[in-house]
């Protein structure tokens, strides 16, 4: 554990909780991509199956349980409790275009051929692109609520902070996992456009709207 990793985890946690609280408080999931949330639920489920097979620390297990619970809680709010507020017309990204290639890639580029390892690798590849339906939705509607922008910023910052963590771990522990590092860089690059808009608009008190 180092400061970059911890900041990344807290940023990730903040993002997930921010989204849950926003939906709960406003009684609405307008502007949120249900498809991205489905992908994140798949990501957490396939990655955190190791809750049952390996124990790292109380911190790790606790966070995994929180991420899983919050993710499925978000899906419940979006697709059951506040379903009438779900803006499915604008959530038109084809997620099979992300699910299938990630799955194929996790069979081609993987460290060890075991079920758990392939599922873990799949979760890494899928997470890298899971935000695409949400970014696509923002580009289609041309705007995002401020709280949604904060959510996206926190979620994007998490992997960027993990990159600093991997650089730190490379020098201090000789840690080098190219699968997670390359996927993490791709994931962060996808947010760059949004980061620019967030810094130039949202932080100056303006709504995030596209030209």
């Amino acid at each position: 554990m180092n400061i970059f990793r911890l900041s990344g985890d807290l940023s990730h946690l903040l993002a997930i909780l921010l989204l849950l609280v926003k939906i709960w408080k406003t009684r609405s999931c307008a502007g949120i991509s249900g498809k991205s949330q489905i992908l994140f639920a798949i990501v957490y489920t396939t990655r955190y199956l190791d809750l049952f097979t390996s124990f790292v620390s109380v911190y790790n297990s606790f966070m995994k349980v929180v991420f899983l619970t919050a993710s499925y809680g978000t899906l419940y709010l979006m697709f059951f409790k506040f379903k009438p507020t779900y803006d499915h017309n604008h959530d038109s990204f084809r997620i099979l275009y992300l699910i299938i290639p990630s799955l194929v890639l996790s069979f081609i580029i993987v460290h060890v051929y075991t079920v758990m390892e392939i599922l873990w690798t799949y979760s890494i590849y899928l997470e890298a692109v899971a935000i695409m339906p949400q970014l696509f939705m923002v580009s289609r509607t041309g705007e995002a609520e401020t709280i949604t922008s904060h959510y996206l910023f926190a979620l994007g910052s998490y992997r960027a902070l993990y990159i600093l963590n991997w650089i730190y771990r490379y020098y201090t522990e000789d840690f080098l996992d190219m699968i997670v590092i390359i996927a993490g860089i791709v994931q962060t690059i996808l947010y760059c456009d949004f980061f620019y808009l967030y810094i130039t608009k949202v932080l100056k008190g303006k709504r995030l709207s596209l030209p």
Partner: peptide, 10 residues
């Protein structure tokens, strides 16, 4: 988890 692999991360 082996600290040399990413499995100790979230």
């Amino acid at each position: 988890g082996n600290p040399k692999d990413g499995k100790d991360e979230l």
